[in-house]
Design a protein around this nucleic acid. Structure first.
Length: 825
DNA sequence: GTTCCTATGCAG
DNA sequence: TGCATAGGAACT
């Protein structure tokens, strides 16, 4: 082995770098830096490295050192990608925290944090040799591949797999390599492509009046060219950079004329990099004054910030939290700080974003999953160089490279979509954002009309500041709310399909007044399940342990877990009976029944199925806003982030499905959702109405929704949590165990739980069978870890990590998947 | 015997 | 993650 101090280059430093790969690997790897790259490597820059025999990846330099690895020879890094680091030291610290808190690998975090455009990986390409051997003995498959290659010279592995229709292709490829037919190339695909546009510039020669005049006379015989020139001069008065396309549009002179001018060297064409992000240069002066209540809340937040880093803003629906946020943000950016504004994914496609964008103009960037990669890279860079001072984003926006972060706003902080469940890192963006803020010495505002129990607990126990905003903005009145018993209505024969007479009457009234209606049903599809009336058979998914849902539009039975679907059945496959009954109902069924009752109105349905296409949701919402549709039926989606002026009635078809959900948060969630849904009714001028239909009409949660009594709900829930030791009185970690074989899984999960129990005792619960015991052909078991609040959580986590690692080395459990989910809610 | 799949180990 | 390798099931 060649050590640095024994080599001929003693006077030169030999550097080694520890790199993070964007893969789920438990350790980081060490590479050696070739001397010529010594100057260029730096922590936070990306390097190109070979990992394994073929693959080339971009990895991130985590650390630089001079000690060579003891037990192996390090490979050389191939190249350094960046001129300046793309990851800041603070981001590394943040990643470290996520890695250790959520028990994942650094590579998981890297994969989640970097936009795909910044993570290039190689693709294996087969290339046909220029000279082929004369005598060939080929198998049928090799001939097939060769034929394609003769046509197109190059092929990716994927293409070979589809061509041969088999998964194992490497033996064939290897054989062709040894027969000297092909060679292998690793093609690194640079994913980010800067957008280049052609710009036109006048040759400086013609800047002088004399020359320009000569040019005019010269062009007299070419009127089109003259047009182009005149148009150029006209635009040049007000603009510096003139795009070719724009000139073409404005002059109407055509490609040929422009080309001729370029050939005459009158115009010079330049390719320039432009931004894909539409930046509205004009900042709108949206003047508004805060109400007294808002002003007081704002002052109070500022006062709280003197002592507390996090403030919970408990502001009832329509109290104008957004305006408050805007004022706080405004102050922070005027002092040169950056702001991260987190919103649930769904809210990002809607009005609130437009409002804030108008206000802050080009200082603001929006970051969410609907953006393509190139756009994300551009946003990343604009945050890095500080040209974006405000970022509005979904949970993944916490990974952007902030330099001067001074404020984090988490709107609708109770939203469950802040938690990422799969894949790792399984982080809770609200909590991670609080840590991020801590790293930056920044302040945090958590806002919600129905705060999560934990946040409210933190606020009432003085860990967070608490500011209340209890007055509706602009004097908007709370809707009149009413709970209607479905059982009672059924008894009195006052049900029409799924609607009580009370709800129907109100709908009639609203429609007569030309007002709009939103109906909420937390289940998509048509009927929940089909069931044979004779033998009780119900069609199930072939991959998962769930009954299939009947969708009428497609005429098929769908699995909502894996996407499997099959044709519906007319007779029972088990007993042949034709008495197939539909049990339960979803949004689709409600839409149909409603159309029968009100044949003249237009109804739209907002759920996962109807919004799958890219602009589906936007279109649906736009139509509803333009009053093209009168009734909007939806799942959870309708509750979140949508504001409609003309909606006077909200109907919850069946609240029981929410309340009966088997989860310790079911009541909290129900309250939050129902309060949010109800709050959508009648926002301006007119008092709206919310009707909640339920079997369990006297449920305490429904009462609390009716009376808007968040505190009562909180107190009751807290009591329950204390009694059964749930958060915030304990920390919860789920260990999900998966295997294709139910028996192996049983044995393995028992063994793992036992191994954990010997170290952590009563804290280990389970393994239990989850509600859905099999998804995508994998059987599932869940072990829960409940840790008292004051126990050393990091020690427990270390034990978990080690025990699971040890467990996975055992021969019979090698193929068992174990995933850890910290704070799984 | 061949062909293909699946499990498993490993990469610096 | 993706690839090499080994062992075995299903085919000829």
């Amino acid at each position: 082995m060649l050590f640095a101090n024994t080599s001929n280059y003693t006077e030169r430093e030999t550097l080694f770098v520890e790199v993070i790969l964007p893969l789920s690997l438990t350790i980081n790897y060490t590479y050696r830096v070739p001397f010529e790259l010594n100057e260029k490597v730096a922590v936070g820059k990306r390097v190109v490295i070979q990992f394994g025999k073929h693959k080339i990846y971009t990895a991130l330099v985590k650390a630089i050192g001079q000690t060579p690895p003891e037990f192996y020879e390090a490979k050389y890094i191939i190249d350094v990608v960046d001129e300046i680091p793309v990851i800041t030291p603070k981001q590394f610290k943040f990643w470290d925290w996520i890695t250790s808190y959520y028990l994942c690998n650094e590579g998981d975090v890297m994969a989640a944090a970097l936009p795909t455009g910044l993570k290039l990986a190689s693709e294996t390409i087969l290339v046909l040799r220029e000279e082929l051997p004369e005598e060939l003995e080929l198998t049928a498959k090799e001939t097939l591949i060769l034929e394609v290659l003769l046509k197109q010279q190059r092929m990716s592995i994927d293409e070979v797999v589809t061509l041969l229709g088999q998964k194992t292709v490497y033996p064939t490829i290897n054989s062709m390599i040894s027969k000297e037919l092909i060679y292998i190339e690793e093609e690194v695909v640079e994913k980010y492509k800067p957008l280049l546009k052609s710009f036109i510039r006048l040759n400086p020669f013609y800047k002088e009046e004399v020359h320009l005049k000569e040019l005019f006379t010269l062009l007299e015989k070419a009127p089109k060219q003259l047009d182009a020139l005149l148009a150029y001069l006209q635009i040049a008065k007000t603009e510096t950079a003139i795009a070719k396309q724009r000139l073409l549009e404005l002059s109407g002179s055509g490609q040929a004329a422009l080309k001729a001018l370029v050939e005459k060297e009158v115009f010079i064409v330049e390719k320039k990099q432009v931004s894909r992000l539409s930046d509205s240069k004009d900042e709108f002066e949206v003047n508004f004054t805060l109400s007294i209540a808002q002003q007081n809340a704002l002052n109070e937040i500022k006062a709280q910030f003197l002592q507390k880093d996090v403030v919970l803003l408990h502001g009832i629906t329509a109290s104008g939290k957004t305006q408050l946020y805007i004022k706080i943000i405004e102050q922070v950016i005027s002092e040169g700080g950056q702001v991260l504004f987190l919103l649930p994914e769904i809210a990002l496609t809607t009005q609130i974003v437009e409002r804030i964008k108008l206000y802050f103009g080009d200082k603001i960037g929006v970051y969410h999953s609907k953006f393509n990669d190139n756009e994300r890279v551009e946003i990343w860079n604009k945050v890095l160089n500080g040209s974006y001072q405000v970022v509005l984003g979904a949970r993944s926006a916490i990974f952007l490279p902030f330099g001067e972060l001074k404020l984090v706003v988490v709107d609708e902080e109770h939203e469950s979509s802040y938690k990422q469940h799969d894949p790792a890192p399984r982080y809770q963006a609200r909590d991670a954002a609080i840590y991020l803020a801590h790293l930056h010495d920044a302040k945090v505002v958590l806002g919600s009309a129905t705060p999560s129990i934990e946040s409210y607990y933190n606020a009432s126990s003085n860990k967070y500041g608490l500011v209340k905003l209890e007055e509706r903005f602009g004097g908007v009145q709370l809707p009149i709310q009413e709970v209607v018993s479905i059982a009672e209505a059924t008894k009195q024969k006052k049900m029409t399909a799924y609607f009580t007479s009370v709800l129907l009457a109100q709908m009639q009234l609203a429609l007569e007044n030309k007002e709009q209606i939103i109906l909420f049903q937390n289940r998509r599809g048509y009927a929940t399940i089909l069931i044979c009336a004779t033998c009780g058979y119900a069609p199930k998914c072939v991959n998962c342990d769930v009954s299939l849902t009947f969708h009428k539009t497609s005429g098929k039975l769908h699995c909502h877990y894996c996407g499997f679907h099959q044709n519906s059945i007319n007779s029972c496959p088990a007993c042949g009976s034709v008495h197939i009954e539909q049990k339960g109902f979803g949004t689709e069924r409600i839409e149909e029944e409603l159309a029968l009752i009100f044949p003249d109105i237009k109804i739209a349905r907002l759920d996962l199925d109807s919004t799958r296409s890219k602009n589906g949701m936007q279109q649906l919402i736009a139509d509803f806003q333009d009053k093209k549709t009168q009734v909007l039926i939806g799942t959870q989606m309708v509750a979140k982030g949508l504001d409609f002026d003309n909606v006077s009635l909200i109907g919850v078809i069946n609240a029981d499905t929410l309340l009966n959900y088997p989860d310790f948060r079911a009541f909290e969630r129900s309250y939050q959702l129902l309060a949010q849904v109800a709050g959508r009714a009648g926002r301006r001028e007119k008092q709206g109405m919310a009707i909640i239909q339920a079997y369990s009409d006297s449920h305490r949660i429904l009462n609390q929704v009716l009376t808007n009594d968040y505190l009562a709900m909180y107190t009751d829930e807290l009591e329950e949590r204390k009694k059964y030791l749930y958060p915030p009185f304990a920390r919860l970690i789920f260990i999900n165990v998966k295997h294709k074989d139910a028996n192996v899984l049983n044995v393995a999960s028992q063994a793992l739980a036992q191994a954990l129990r010997t170290q952590l005792g009563h804290r280990i619960l389970g393994p239990e069978q989850p509600l859905v015991a099999r998804i995508r052909n994998y059987y599932l078991k869940q072990i829960s870890v409940k840790v008292e609040k004051n126990a050393p959580i990091q020690k427990v986590k270390n034990v978990l990590k080690e025990t699971i690692a040890e467990f996975n080395t055992q021969k019979e459990f090698k193929s068992v998947w174990v995933q850890i989910d910290v704070d799984p809610y």
